[in-house]
């Protein structure tokens, strides 16, 4: 129950930041469009099953879409992210499986290097598909490649300070505690 409330508050906060701050700031450059809301999906607990994850991804994406008037665009990108997330976690978790010790992916639970790989690759997947769909209707191929790279980098530049500024205090789960 606490878990659900925590994640609901989180998604509301991320949507607010995405819709009213990141989409409202004056245009920086045509290649740079920062995005942050997908961090919510990356922070979901380990205990969410892959199938539930897909539904959550679709719902989150659609809510963003209805605010930004592009039904399906972010939803589709989120689905790719949610498809790859379990694979990534499977590959990157340390030997002594932290899945059972920690609640959700974080620099603490995955360790910094694997966590950075986890964040960067999934951000790349999300942005590639997003920019690809936009490119289908408009734009040139060079723009397409540069835009994927630029928006991934700018999003990571937002994600990493957030991880540093707001460390999620995840207690090491033991049998004794709860």
């Amino acid at each position: 129950m606490r878990e659900i409330v925590r994640n609901l508050l989180r998604v509301v906060l991320f949507l607010f930041i995405e819709v009213y701050i990141l989409q409202q700031i004056p245009h920086l450059h045509r290649f740079i469009s920062p995005s942050l809301y997908f961090l919510f999906l990356l922070w979901l607990p380990f205990s969410v099953t892959p199938r539930t994850l897909l539904w959550i991804g679709l719902a989150t994406g659609l809510v963003v879409d209805y605010f930004l008037q592009s039904p399906g665009l972010h939803a589709s990108a989120c689905l790719w992210l949610c498809l790859f997330r379990p694979f990534m976690i499977g590959i990157l978790t340390p030997r002594v499986s932290s899945e059972f010790n920690y609640r959700e992916p974080s620099p603490q639970s995955l360790l910094w290097a694997p966590y950075l790989i986890y964040i960067s690759l999934l951000t790349l997947v999300h942005h590639t598909w997003l920019v690809f769909l936009e490119w289908l209707s408009f734009g040139s191929f060079d723009d397409f490649l540069i835009k994927i790279f630029a928006s991934t980098v700018i999003s990571l530049l937002l994600v990493i300070p957030i991880e540093l500024l707001f460390p999620r205090n995840l207690s090491f789960r033991t049998n004794a505690g709860r």
């Binding site: 892959p50 199938r51 897909l54 539904w55 991804g57 679709l58 994406g61 659609l62 879409d65 592009s70 039904p71 399906g72 665009l73 939803a75 589709s76 689905l79 790719w80 949610c82 498809l83 769909l133």
Partner: peptide, 17 residues
């Protein structure tokens, strides 16, 4: 089943788009 769910939901969202 997970992969098929993915395919189904992806179709739905692309259809929306």
């Amino acid at each position: 089943l997970t992969f098929f769910t993915f395919l189904f939901l992806q179709t739905v969202s692309l259809w929306f788009l």
